[in-house]
Design a protein around this nucleic acid. Structure first.
Lengths: 139, 139
DNA sequence: CATAATTTGTTTGTGTACTAATAGACTGTG
DNA sequence: CACAGTCTATTAGTACACAAACAAATTATG
């Protein structure tokens, strides 16, 4: 009856996005083998801000409390960021990039741009902008 | 010097895709609380095919060997799929949906379409098609 | 036919992501 | 001031995702 009553997995946004993310992560880890995309995102945001509480950093990088804790733990164990409880609010754990963390960020920031470039390479400039804009609207 | 020498996390495809996937998964689990998107994908594909080996199912749903194993284990422990070694090729584990699995698929297939609809709801019809097509090209 | 290469599935380890429960610290209101 | 509600961080549990190493079965090749 309906022209579209079959469910075609391959055409569902969720499925296609999952595959696109897979490819993106593969490109990322080829170009930036020392870090995951999530770790780089947290480090980049922290370098941009100078410092932030763990919770704040999680919100700004779209990671929930449990996720950001794991990411921060791993970055800290590699001495890319430092942490200290805040005197004026003892609930908060203030984070800052270490010298080593800043160096790591500087080392890879150009590569990170290249990751985005390669991910979008099959599209022309207009299409690239369009894709990012459409994605931003369904967030 | 350059007009774009700062790295803006929020504008990177990877970051935006990650957030879009997060929203999609939230919609999915609100509408289909009994299963994850991945589990539904595997079950749907298996219902479409009738049967498949574990490896085959993994390839068709874009899950690597370790991932598909976990997904299959969980579906099997809930008796949504059955498995049996293939006589003619003893390496292969043939999978098929159980009656219960088929019922589960039928129960949620309309909801799965609704998940895609809600995920794309902020866009008009043309934009929805465009987004999916652009994503397909960067896979 | 024998052996090398490939395919399939399993296991281990690491990392992301979410839920739910908990505890301690802070804030607001009565 | 007290105490209820909120915020921050931690912990435990489940699930996806990938890499690497392995064993068993099959296929290809000399």
């Amino acid at each position: 009856m309906d022209k579209n009553d079959t469910y075609i997995l391959e055409r569902q946004v969720g499925f296609v996005m999952r595959r696109a993310v897979q490819r993106h992560i593969a490109i990322f880890s080829a170009l930036i083998p020392e870090m995951t995309p999530t770790q780089f995102a947290a480090l980049a945001k922290l370098c941009e801000l100078g410092q932030a509480s763990q919770n704040e950093l999680g919100r700004l990088t779209s990671m929930d409390v449990a996720t950001i804790k794991g990411v921060v733990d791993r970055l800290r164990s590699r001495e890319l960021i430092s942490s200290a409880p805040l005197e004026s609010d003892k609930r908060r754990l203030m984070l800052a990039p270490t010298r080593k963390g800043r160096a790591m960020y500087r080392k890879y920031v150009a590569q990170a741009t290249e990751v985005s470039r390669q991910t979008l390479a099959p599209l022309d400039d207009g299409e690239q902008r369009q894709l990012v804009q459409l994605l931003e609207r369904i967030i």
